[in-house]
Design a binder for these strands. Structure first.
Lengths: 270, 270
DNA sequence: TACCCTCTCC
DNA sequence: GGAGAGGGTA
């Protein structure tokens, strides 16, 4: 026999969080789902985070949403929600961009609940998603001091990867104090795009900034850089951080203090 | 030898009607053609109407265009035009949305004529379509007093059917005085969308109205509700009428007094 | 499943 | 005219 109190406990949520704008989490999923099929969403007092290698174990995705970025955030005990990203994408397609989104997980940990509310509150949608058991190899990411850090408009990043991808499979990225250069060498010919740091910073969407410790010149798979470009809607700018013989970090920040989505990709040997 | 007089008679049309906006009939066809392959267009003094079951005999389509909704309407004798809807769609693709459209049927009843004229009248297109013999089982639709009638934006209807269709095959529609709820239960989880009657009716495209005689709770095939959603471009709002153990009626009205497109779908047994 | 193309809406 | 969504194809 289950007591009244136990029943009440059963309907208390171990984890509950609300975002004002469903569009944020929708965009995050669009930026991850082509790379990763299943992932653990780790909920703790600090916030919501996800870390996963892509299915071919070539690149790594790391997402963090800080607790203070939520309209409401309660986490009684750290919990990992194993989620199939295709299923979650289906559910998020049912949320309007301006809906608020509430995420809940109960004690049993076998399902997650999503509630979408329209701004006018005359529409309320609720979804339950069955959870999976995913053994995640939580890779430690060394906190490197990179030799070269380039900030550029994310639309420019997307454009360059898409354009150069037409001509070849790999891109050589060379960063000097004066410029960052993307070069491709393919069957039909060669191509390159060179950006110079912007002297006058009129619009934030046109900034190019270079911080250099030491010049770098490395080669990467364009295919993966293109996967990372799916995150462009999340931020006006993207930051590329490079060090010789070290994985490239591609970072998209969500507004101020909200969190970030970072991708890592090992260089190719020339 | 055919006399001059007989030739003149042969060019007299038993039925002739003109609509100012070809877009209306184009949209109607888009809303029917995925459900029905061939249908009789019944012309009478009252107007133009069509009634047909879909090819799997699961749902019923009923369309009425009142004579007074036409710019010109002449019908000397009731006539049924058996038309292949795929062929008619091809012809209607040749009409501009703002063209006027004239439909004619002669005595012999073996073909229909379509004339499209641009507003400036500097373009005139004529098409002839061979007619078919279609034996239509003209089902009487009982004029029911429904237990629950819900009016909602047709875009909302389309969105809900499309969203929930991703998660399962059937939807449970529950109407109470306070709300209408659409629920789906599928392999990856559950989902529901709940609409509340709008207190402030600012825009006609955001209205939710519920007239209730008695609460209802019924189950329907989402696939067919999605077919019906193709009619959304015809009207800002859609009206769902439900009664226990009775087919659901989904109605789209064309402006004031022009006519309507109604779909009927039998409920599933729980 | 991912990319491309088309179509529609803004 | 541009961007986003949906559908079709590879």
């Amino acid at each position: 026999m289950v007591s009244k109190e136990e029943q009440n406990l059963a309907t208390t949520f171990q984890f509950e969080a609300r975002l004002t704008q469903a569009s944020l989490i929708k965009k995050i999923l669009e930026a991850i789902k082509d790379l990763v099929t299943d992932a653990n969403f780790d909920c703790s007092a600090e916030g919501l985070s996800l870390q996963a290698m892509d299915s071919s174990h070539v690149s790594l995705v790391s997402m963090v949403l800080h607790a203070q970025g939520f309209e409401m955030f309660r986490c009684q005990r750290a919990v990992s929600l194993g989620i199939n990203l295709a299923s979650l994408t289906k559910i998020l397609k049912c949320a309007g961009n301006d809906d608020s989104i509430t995420l809940r997980a109960d004690d049993k940990g076998d399902k997650a609940e999503f509630v979408f509310e329209s701004q006018t509150q005359d529409r309320l949608s609720e979804f339950e998603l069955k959870l999976m058991d995913i053994d995640s190899e939580h890779l430690g990411i060394p906190d490197t001091k990179y030799s070269a850090v380039v900030e550029m408009p994310s639309s420019e990043y997307r454009r360059i990867c898409s354009d150069l991808g037409v001509m070849g499979d790999t891109v050589r990225i060379s960063v000097s104090k004066e410029s960052v250069k993307f070069q491709v060498d393919g069957d039909i010919g060669k191509g390159s795009v060179c950006l110079h740091p912007s002297s006058v910073v009129d619009k934030p969407t046109e900034v190019v900034k270079i911080s250099l410790e030491e010049p770098v010149d490395m080669i990467f798979s364009i295919r993966y850089l293109n996967f990372f470009a799916k995150a462009a809607p999340l931020s006006d700018t993207v930051t590329l951080s490079l060090s010789k013989d070290f994985p490239l970090q591609v970072e998209f920040k969500f507004g101020e203090q909200m969190g970030y989505l970072r991708y890592y990709l090992a260089p190719k040997i020339d």
